[in-house]
C-alpha cells in the first residue's frame, strides 16, 4: 500500500485535491444538466407521475408566441447589455486620474454594483412609477405625455435593461480600472514621445494592453444578459401581458411560479437557453485555449 502510494503519489495527489470540487461540480452542475434534458422529454406537473411525451415539449415551443417574445427580448438584452463595456471603459479612463479624493469618487461609481439587484429593481420601479416617479414626471414635463414605462409593451424591456446596465457598467468599470493599473507606463511614455495623443493613443497603445480586461468584461456581460431574471421578476413579473419575459423568466413561470405546473415544458425552455449559452461559452473557452496554447 505504502509502496503504491509512494510510487504514484505525484499522479494521485492532484486528483485528491480536485475531488471535493469535482464532486460538487458534478452534483450541482453536470448532473442537473442531464436531468433537465431528461425531464424536458416528459409531461410532468412536479408532483404526480411523469408521462413520456418525447419531443412534444419542443414541438410546442416551436409554435409558442410567448417563447418567441422571450427569445426576442433575450436578443435585445444581449445587444444592449454590451453597451456596458464601452461605457465602463469610458468611466474607468475618466476616473483613472490622480486627484485628491479620487478613491471616494471611484467607490461612489462602484456603488451600484454593491447593492443587491433586488434593490436596483425597486429603485428603478419607483423611478418609472406612474404619478410620482421622477422619470415619469420628467417625461411628462418635457413631452406633455404621460408614459408608464413598465406598463407599456413598447418600452418595458428597454426600461428594465437600463436598470440592469447601471450596476453592470460599474462592474465593467472596476475590471478596466484594475486593467489600467497594469498598463506599462514606459509604453505610454514612448508613444507620447512619438506624438501619439487622444484616440490614437487609446486605440493603438492602451486598448491592446487592456485586452484581458476587455475579454472578461465581454464574458461577464454576455452571461449576465442571458441569465437576466431578477430584474424582470421584481420590476414587472414578465408583464404587461408577458411582453417583458426573457427565457429564464419564462422557464420559471412555466415550471415553478404560482400558476406554473409544467416541469417538462420549463425544462425544455431551460435546454434551449442552455444551448444558446453554450454557443457563447464554447466560443470563450476556445478563445482562452487558443490564447494560452499558441503564445
Amino acid at each position: 500500500m505504502t509502496d503504491f502510494w509512494k510510487s504514484n503519489q505525484r499522479r494521485i495527489a492532484p486528483w485528491l485535491f480536485l475531488a471535493p470540487g469535482l464532486f460538487m461540480f458534478a452534483v450541482y452542475v453536470i448532473i442537473p444538466i442531464f436531468q433537465s434534458l431528461w425531464i424536458s422529454l416528459y409531461d410532468w406537473d412536479g408532483l404526480g407521475a411523469k408521462v413520456w411525451i418525447g419531443t412534444a415539449n419542443y414541438v410546442e415551443l416551436w409554435d409558442d408566441d410567448a417563447f418567441y417574445t422571450s427569445l426576442k427580448n433575450n436578443v435585445i438584452w444581449l445587444i444592449l447589455y454590451l453597451l456596458a463595456v464601452p461605457a465602463g471603459l469610458f468611466i474607468a479612463i475618466f476616473l483613472n486620474q490622480t486627484i485628491t479624493g479620487m478613491r471616494l469618487y471611484k467607490s461612489l461609481f462602484f456603488f451600484p454594483f454593491v447593492i443587491s439587484q433586488v434593490v436596483v429593481g425597486l429603485i428603478f420601479s419607483w423611478f418609472y412609477a406612474p404619478d410620482f416617479g421622477l422619470f415619469y414626471k420628467l417625461i411628462e414635463l418635457l413631452t406633455g405625455q404621460s408614459i408608464a414605462i413598465l406598463a407599456d409593451d413598447r418600452f418595458v424591456t428597454y426600461g428594465i435593461i437600463a436598470a440592469g446596465l447601471w450596476p453592470q457598467i460599474a462592474y465593467v468599470m472596476i475590471l478596466y480600472l484594475t486593467g489600467l493599473n497594469n498598463v506599462a507606463p514606459d509604453q505610454i511614455e514612448a508613444a507620447r514621445l512619438d506624438g501619439a495623443k487622444g484616440w490614437r493613443m487609446l486605440w493603438y497603445v492602451v486598448l491592446p494592453q487592456l485586452r484581458p480586461a476587455t475579454f472578461i468584461a465581454v464574458v461577464v456581460t454576455v452571461i449576465g444578459a442571458l441569465r437576466s431574471f431578477d430584474l424582470v421578476s421584481i420590476m414587472t413579473d414578465g408583464g404587461p401581458y408577458g411582453s417583458s419575459r426573457v427565457l429564464s423568466f419564462y422557464m420559471y413561470e412555466q415550471a415553478l411560479s404560482e400558476y406554473g405546473y409544467r416541469m417538462g415544458y420549463g425544462a425544455a425552455i431551460a435546454v434551449v437557453l442552455f444551448a444558446i449559452m453554450m454557443v457563447f461559452i464554447s466560443g470563450f473557452i476556445w478563445k482562452m485555449w487558443r490564447d494560452e496554447s499558441e503564445r
Partner: peptide, 17 residues
C-alpha cells in the same frame, strides 16, 4: 386550471390596455 388562468388573466390585462 392554472395554465388557463394565467393566460386568461394576461389576456384581460392586455384587453384593458
Amino acid at each position: 386550471p392554472a395554465e388557463m388562468a394565467k393566460a386568461g388573466m394576461e389576456g384581460f390585462q392586455e384587453f384593458m390596455v
